[in-house]
Every structure is written in structure tokens, then in C-alpha cells.
């Protein structure tokens, strides 16, 4: 028993050294830097946080549209209709190539808050703050066929008005969402997720859908994954 105790103490000392080293290494690593891309790999890194925000209008009938502005002075007249990746890259400076193959290109912006204005079928527009954006385009980097937006972490109180707005914008009944929200509250552990969206649309048209997923954070346990697809 005594022998085991000595071994344990010795091992613990080793661990102290290791963990201090590990902690320091991670502390340094909290500010990731850009890396050089090699010929056969795609490398990305988080961009520095900026105060730049983005406003976007997405029309169910047509295209992605967005303009760069401040959240406090949304100017719908400045909206530029966007459908191509080139236009999107012009509006989102933090967009980086995640990967590309012969089937498609995937571009992301992670960790930078962007404000989108999304316009539904009834012309009702809502603001959607996203801290993660992923755009998937054809392999030539032309047309975007999938746009995915993740909201920041939210409490149920923060989520509820956004959820209602999303349902109203998509002209779907919010009651199932409200019932779900009442049921789960801010308790994420073993709580069900919520999905809704438009029914199938004819080929070529854009389809809006969303899900409320776990963040695993006790204070803000939910985030919204908003999807626009057209294929």
C-alpha cells in the first residue's frame, strides 16, 4: 500500500509538470495564426475579431443578397443581390476556403459575428446574427447552392423571439416550436432538438429550413442552424 502511495505521488509530480506545460501551451495557442497552404492541402485559421458586420437579404424567389453595413444602421437600399461565390467573398472578408474537390467548394467564416437580413416569402425580413457561415458552391466556385448560418449561443429567452420570427417569415405554424420551448427551457441535458422549415420546393428554387441544436452550455444551451439550399 505504501509502495503504491509513493508511486502515486511520484506520478502526480510528473503530472504537475506536464499539466503546467500543457496549460501554457494551450494559453499561447488561443491566438491562432494563419498558416501557409501547401500544394495538396487546404489550411485555414480563424481570423482576428473585427467590428465589421454584414447585412444580407436572402430571397426565397431568387438569390442571396447582402450589403456590408453596421447593425445600427441597416440600409436596405444598399443591398446587393448576390448569387455567386465571388459576390459573397466580396461581402464577407473573413470567408476562407475550407476545402475544394471536383464536386464542390466549401467556404467558411468562423468566430466573427455577422448580421444577416433574411427575407421570407411574405416579404417579412428578419435579422439573423451568425457567428459561423458556411457556403458551398459548385466546383468552379460559381453558384452557391448551400448556405449555412449558425447563431451564437442563446438562452431560451433569447431564442424564443427569433424562433417566432423564423416561423412567421417562413409562414409556418410556430406553435410546435413554442410548445417545445416551454418544455425544454434552458435545460439542454437529454432535451430533444427542434427542426422545421419549408416543405420541398421545385428543383432549382431555394429551400429554407432550420434546426435548434445543443451548445452544451448551461447558460446559453441553444443555437440555431439556418440552412438555405437549392439543387
Amino acid at each position: 500500500m505504501k509502495k503504491y502511495f509513493l508511486v502515486f505521488i511520484a506520478a502526480a509530480c510528473v503530472c504537475v509538470v506536464y499539466l503546467i506545460w500543457h496549460y501554457e501551451r494551450e494559453r499561447v495557442a488561443t491566438a491562432p495564426s494563419l498558416k501557409n497552404a501547401s500544394s495538396n492541402s487546404t489550411k485555414v485559421a480563424a481570423s482576428p475579431v473585427t467590428t465589421t458586420v454584414l447585412t444580407a437579404i436572402v430571397s426565397t424567389q431568387a438569390v442571396f443578397g447582402m450589403s456590408q453595413t453596421n447593425t445600427s444602421s441597416l440600409d436596405s437600399t444598399a443591398i446587393v443581390q448576390i448569387e455567386s461565390l465571388a459576390d459573397l467573398k466580396e461581402k464577407i472578408a473573413s470567408l476562407k476556403l475550407l476545402e475544394a474537390d471536383k464536386y464542390d467548394q466549401v467556404w467558411v467564416s468562423d468566430g466573427i459575428p455577422l448580421v444577416f437580413e433574411i427575407k421570407g416569402k411574405n416579404d417579412k425580413a428578419i435579422r439573423f446574427v451568425a457567428d459561423f457561415v458556411e457556403a458551398t458552391s459548385d466546383p468552379e466556385g460559381g453558384r452557391i447552392w448551400k448556405l449555412e448560418l449558425h447563431s451564437p449561443n442563446m438562452s431560451i429567452e433569447e431564442l424564443r423571439p427569433l424562433g417566432i420570427q423564423l416561423h412567421e417569415m417562413l409562414k409556418i405554424d410556430p406553435q410546435p416550436f413554442l410548445s417545445w420551448a416551454d418544455k425544454v427551457g434552458n435545460a439542454w441535458v437529454d432535451s430533444p432538438l427542434y427542426y422545421n422549415g419549408e416543405p420541398a420546393v421545385p428543383a432549382g428554387e431555394k429551400r429554407f429550413s432550420f434546426g435548434v441544436l445543443h451548445t452544451y452550455n448551461d447558460e446559453r444551451p441553444w443555437f440555431v442552424r439556418f440552412l438555405i439550399t437549392s439543387r
Binding site: G197, A200, S209, G211, R225, L227
Partner: peptide, 13 residues
């Protein structure tokens, strides 16, 4: 994937 309310349930592509 095409059912109403199925938004994002799966990545059909």
C-alpha cells in the same frame, strides 16, 4: 428529406 418540417434533419446530398 422532402417532408414538411424536416429542415436540416439530414444531409441528403
Amino acid at each position: 428529406a422532402i417532408a414538411p418540417g424536416s429542415g436540416g434533419l439530414l444531409d441528403i446530398e
